[in-house]
Write a protein that binds this DNA or RNA. Sequence first.
DNA 1: CTGAAAGCGCTTACAG
DNA 2: CTGAAAGCGCTTACAG
Lengths: 338, 338
Amino acid sequence: MKKDNITIQDVARHAGVSMMTVSRVMGKKTNVKETTRRKILAAIEQLQYQPNVAARSLAGSRSYFLGLVYDNPNEAYLSQILMGALHKCTDRGYNLVISSFERAADGSYKIDDALINRAKLDGVIIPPPLCDSPEILRRLTDADIPMVRIAPQTLPDYSAFVRMDDRRAAHEITEFLINLGHRKIGFITGHPDHGASKLRYEGMKKALEDKGIPLRQDYIQQGYFSYKSGADCTENLLELEDPPTAIFASSDDMAAGAISTVHRHGLSVPDDISVVGFDDVPLASAIWPGLTTIRQPIMAMAERAAEFLMYPDPEKEKDNILDYKLIIRESAAPPHTS
Amino acid sequence: MKKDNITIQDVARHAGVSMMTVSRVMGKKTNVKETTRRKILAAIEQLQYQPNVAARSLAGSRSYFLGLVYDNPNEAYLSQILMGALHKCTDRGYNLVISSFERAADGSYKIDDALINRAKLDGVIIPPPLCDSPEILRRLTDADIPMVRIAPQTLPDYSAFVRMDDRRAAHEITEFLINLGHRKIGFITGHPDHGASKLRYEGMKKALEDKGIPLRQDYIQQGYFSYKSGADCTENLLELEDPPTAIFASSDDMAAGAISTVHRHGLSVPDDISVVGFDDVPLASAIWPGLTTIRQPIMAMAERAAEFLMYPDPEKEKDNILDYKLIIRESAAPPHTS
DNA sequence: CTGAAAGCGCTTACAG
DNA sequence: CTGAAAGCGCTTACAG
């Protein structure tokens, strides 16, 4: 392809300054007079200037490469992360290098030296579950590569992280059920190894407390985030003498399993029993009835993470909490008035 | 990060030649004496030389950028495409620019000029449904940007494409059902607008013919690739006087809907009725019973597409057909012997 | 706050 | 078949 593109020289000429000053504006340096900056910004806008990534990378001390490592059990989740990071990178003239890590039999990860040595990454984004691997964190720290972790379980202060408030989200969706009129709410917990499971449980518990509704132990079932576990737990719930009128499964996969079990019992969702989930995976809107659930801001988390790495600033907050959203579909309704 | 890496100069010095000759070897040019080439190759190997992407891109006539455009109806599908393309690009020192297109109200797409003008792409990968948009194809053709289409419905010969054999795959999974002992096989067609729907139908029909099993019109139901449509079609199938013993839904989403309906009727999958799908989306292994289905080589298709763009060669076949795979899980079994 | 010079690591186009 | 020169579009380091 021909290279008849607008260069930094064109912008400089247009704005009546030197190339150097344009470079400073592009790099968000502060030592440029405000009026000059505005003139340059106008020229950039008018010419639709886009810096040449290759030249930037070649000349500069940064590589304009960001890394994304993953070991992903969950495709939908990774896809969101990927899209978020990639979009931000493309927008900002960065490149994304993705690299997968295999978990060894002993549960540890071996690190790809190539990634660390050759790529000269400006930073790396680490989604779960890798973000909680001590080897990975130490290796990157040793190599002096900045990192941002996404939704980590533990929050040590040596790296930045982006997350959402699982506790508050679980509180909100429980409250939603209560406001619908439900008092008998079954809860299916997530995998005990995941930090979020505990937070979601706590949020649900707090919502009950706040409304003065007692927590019944027989309404709490231990799930593992899978469809099957959601189906099994629901089986248990429906066999109770006084079964719940609503079920809050702490993942969509489990909620989908719950719905299938309710149907198998010849009952209707939401007419007989309401079911809500958590995550808003594609499945949530694919099945019928559509799942009322919490949408995690996964893509936004990746975007924020990438941005954090692009503009290093020691003043920046290390803890970035993003907003979730309650998605109301058809799987929850007021309880049967019997 | 510091740039203390091995450069082409180091290799040249090591091999006792000029930088230029090394460059020729790297670029796979043929005009280099065999002994010289070997000396250089040895030096490259010994020094672990990796060309600097940025320098290459800046100096050369190629950009080492590939584009991936999408309009995303299906996250799981796109995610696979993305992973395949990204892996290949990362491996080969290429960069990937992704860009989404919004469909206008009239069904047409407006093209992002920025993508075409600024990025200087060496080529673009076009997955469905964009690969069948005349505007996009014409725009890219006009801009003289090479492209590879993935699984297009129509196969005009002005661009290369990568696909799988939907007809043969449908034939194979139908045969699988027949070999299990099924003679009464219901079929749920895909969305009439998708080219693959027809191919899958034809494959199923052919398999029946090959085994001398008559095609019953009441066993054919028109679906739309959605969970809901799969559930509804199955409702119709189960209401027949002589219902099928197996159902082949031409997408996994529809197969999942089919299973839910079978369960709602108090029947078991696969003991009472077998159900098979097509696609192998994440849902297929999430639900219970796991879906027997056809795995499309989506990631491999994207890899092949990227590779095609990296090594232009007029001799190359334009039609790249990749292998699918029959994935056997728990949703199909021999029919009830009654 | 702004600019002139040098150079990042390659490939192109030309010369032999 | 091989090489010396020029330059891709930026940023760094230095000077004012």
